[in-house]
């Protein structure tokens, strides 16, 4: 696409959108949002970036191969489930850590870790598909 405005605005827009997607991911436990929605927003940011800046630029921006990101996400999600085994609970039982300096935080938990895994999977897989299609022309 050859819109100058779009080309200029894209890096900022994309940066902001990715930031927003992480925000949506992290607040998801208490208000609408979460790993799936955050991941989709993140993926759409990179999709915009790919269309405007090209595949190579997206690859640079993501640092890692998108499929690797998805794989790492799946691994993190699985790992968060294993944690409960250490405490004698069944696989994938949520575990919380209430640090003494902020006992009301209720945030440091395997459940949030799991959601981060979901986020990475969604971003990685969708960007992989879009990049693959874009490249195959």
């Amino acid at each position: 696409m050859n819109s100058l405005i779009l080309k200029t605005a894209t890096p900022f827009l994309v940066g902001l959108t990715v930031l927003f997607s992480i925000y949506v991911l992290l607040r998801g436990h208490n208000v609408p949002g979460g790993g799936f929605i955050g991941g989709l927003i993140g993926a759409s940011a990179f999709a915009t970036y790919t269309i405007n800046e090209g595949v190579a630029a997206t690859r640079r921006a993501m640092v890692f191969h998108p499929v690797s990101i998805a794989g790492v996400g799946l691994f993190i999600a699985g790992l968060s489930g294993v944690a409960s085994l250490l405490f004698g609970d069944a696989f994938m039982t949520g575990q919380w850590w209430f640090p003494s300096f902020a006992p009301d935080l209720k945030y440091l938990s395997t459940v949030v870790l799991f959601d981060i895994g979901v986020y990475l999977v969604v971003v990685g897989a969708i960007v992989a598909i879009i990049i693959g299609l874009e490249e195959s022309t």
């Binding site: 998801g28 436990h29 208490n30 208000v31 609408p32 949002g33 979460g34 790993g35 799936f36 499929v67 998805a70 794989g71 996400g73 799946l74 999600a77 699985g78 489930g81 696989f91 994938m92 949520g94 459940v111 949030v112 799991f114 959601d115 895994g117 979901v118 999977v121 969604v122 990685g124 897989a125």
Partner: peptide
């Protein structure tokens, strides 16, 4: 968690979700 839908996804039924994100990968 206050968002019940998200809590179901990532906590109560996390194993299902885990299978589903595996499908996405």
């Amino acid at each position: 968690g206050r968002n019940i839908v998200n809590v179901i996804l990532v906590d109560f039924r996390a194993l299902d979700t885990f299978g589903e994100i595996a499908v996405v990968v």
